[in-house]
Design a protein around this nucleic acid. Structure first.
Length: 481
DNA sequence: TTTTGAGTTGTTCGA
DNA sequence: GTCGAACAACTCAAA
């Protein structure tokens, strides 16, 4: 068994709980882990700027950890993964190709094709489940259809077979002795030309060890207060694991196991409840993948058909721009959009607020919102992004009832009562008192002057009147029923 | 096939 | 200031 094993590396940039890599190690032959960069194959969904930045850091980290195990990460670039792989097979005499499964429609297409073609030339091809806890086709309703409502889906997951415990990292990988001409990670040109990433660098540590640290930190300091604190954007009440999960620097099974252990160890019912709320969030990610797998058209189209005729505003470029740049005049919305722009991430509570504002106050399509998030989020994930946007717009699975329109002022007062979050991201309002920081247009001229703010000069006027916008949205929603 | 109960994350109005 | 009800049906999942 000396002919090498190729391991296709994708969004599974970790040594631990990596079934394909472990299987390659166990096969005993030299292992060639290869990352093939082929943006053309992703079509409309090629990597956004923030994703590229993260990927660059993460490939570097993964390449180093592979080295410690004895293997070299080969970096290649090609318009076709298949062509690239065929050349590599020829060059190396490899007889097996392993990978961990992907679940996005176009990824499935590519991987299916790879499998067929490679089998035709007698290569041993194996794909493994590693990036989800529950394979999307294993959870179904009593009548065999996919779930469209979360609660029964969650119950079905709990009743399904207990998730297998995560796998250990391979002890060592046998190196491939020949020479292979690969690219340097720098050659992929993933890093931005102009240096806009400094905000991200100070906030994030991409890579498997960064992921482990985050999880430990979260379990030690925030898991048991998660239920309430996850809603407060000025606090570290959330896990910050989304980008690590997206790139597979940690697996959901690893998270599940460690959180479950912490949950089982405590006797406090309240702590158990808090941990359970977090596990439910991990399963929301599974649900988003379940929906995209069974309804691939939801990438572009609403799951609920009556929304196909929704008259989204398509000529409001100025409003869209104001939203993107965080200049809507609604402080909590602007704070969120600027946090996103600076760090590549936004607190989930605020994601709901800005998404509700775009789709219901500005009546701009969820697709436009999803595109912006895709380009700016470091955790941009096709399944979660699509699902989240459809959910807020009211056209997705288990979606919010149409009359649930977030009031950006109330949300601000409720979840950022002192204005700490707003002051951090909207420095123009730094000296605004908590009393009116979420509605600066209500302040008197004296108060504004005292805080050094002139509305319309230092900080924008509200781009729409929320009360009126709400009424308009309700009318339209009523008309598409 | 029909029936029944239930459905993440809100807001507003009126007492 | 606080509280409960109304919002408007509809679709899903299971019995």
């Amino acid at each position: 068994m000396s002919n090498p094993t190729i391991v296709l590396v994708r969004n599974d940039l970790r040594l631990a709980d990596n079934p394909a890599l472990l299987a390659a190690a166990r096969r005993g032959a030299p292992t060639i882990p290869v990352y093939i960069y082929s943006p053309q194959e992703d079509g409309d969904w090629s990597f956004g700027g923030a994703t590229k930045w993260w990927l660059h850091q993460s490939l570097t980290a993964f390449s180093n950890s592979l080295k410690e195990k004895g293997a070299e990460l080969l970096i290649l670039k090609d318009e076709s993964t298949l062509d690239c792989l065929e050349k590599l097979l020829k060059k190396t005499g490899a007889e097996a190709v392993y990978w961990n499964r992907r679940y996005e429609p176009h990824s499935i297409e590519i991987d299916k094709n790879l499998k067929t073609r490679l089998k035709e030339v007698d290569v041993e091809v194996r794909s493994f489940p590693g990036n989800l806890i529950f394979e999307p086709w294993t959870i179904s309703t009593g009548s065999g259809t996919p779930y469209k409502v979360y609660t029964p889906y969650w119950k079905a997951c709990l009743e399904a077979e207990t998730p297998a415990p995560p796998l250990s990292p391979p002890e060592s990988l046998k190196p491939f002795e020949g020479t292979l001409e690969g690219l340097q990670i720098e050659d992929l040109k993933l890093e931005p030309k102009i240096d806009w990433a400094s905000g991200m660098e100070s906030f994030w540590e991409p890579g498997e060890s960064g992921a482990e640290k985050r999880l430990r930190q979260f379990i030690d300091s925030a898991l048991f207060t998660y239920k309430e604190d996850r809603n407060l954007p000025y606090q570290d009440g959330v896990s910050y694991l989304s980008p690590y999960l997206h790139f597979g620097e940690i697996s959901p099974r690893q998270i599940w196991q460690q959180v479950k252990e912490a949950l089982d160890k405590t006797d406090s019912n309240s702590k158990k409840e808090n941990a359970r709320v977090y596990l439910k969030e991990i399963v929301w990610r599974e649900f988003a993948h379940h929906i995209l797998y069974h309804f691939p058209a939801t990438l572009e189209e609403p799951l609920r058909e009556n929304f196909e005729k929704f008259p989204w505003e398509s000529n409001q470029k100025d409003l869209y721009k104001a939203w993107c740049k965080g200049k809507t005049g609604y402080p909590i919305v602007d704070a969120g959009m600027r946090q996103l722009w600076t760090t590549g991430w936004m607190h989930n509570r605020v994601r709901m607020i800005v998404a509700s504002f775009l789709t219901k106050d500005l009546l701009i399509s969820w697709q436009d919102g999803a595109k912006w998030f895709w380009d700016t989020l470091v955790d941009a994930d096709l399944a979660s992004n699509t699902f989240g946007w459809q959910w807020t717009a009211g056209c997705g699975a288990d979606a919010a009832p149409f009359f649930r329109i977030f009031n950006p002022v109330l949300q601000g007062k409720k979840f950022d009562p002192d204005g700490t979050y707003v002051r951090e991201w909207v420095p123009e309002l730094k000296h605004a008192p908590a009393k009116w920081i979420h509605e600066p247009w209500e302040a008197s001229t004296e108060e504004l002057e005292k805080a050094g703010i002139t509305i319309g000069v230092d900080y924008p006027e509200p781009v729409v009147n929320h009360g009126e916008a709400r009424k308009k949205a309700l009318d339209i929603y009523a008309s598409i029923k």
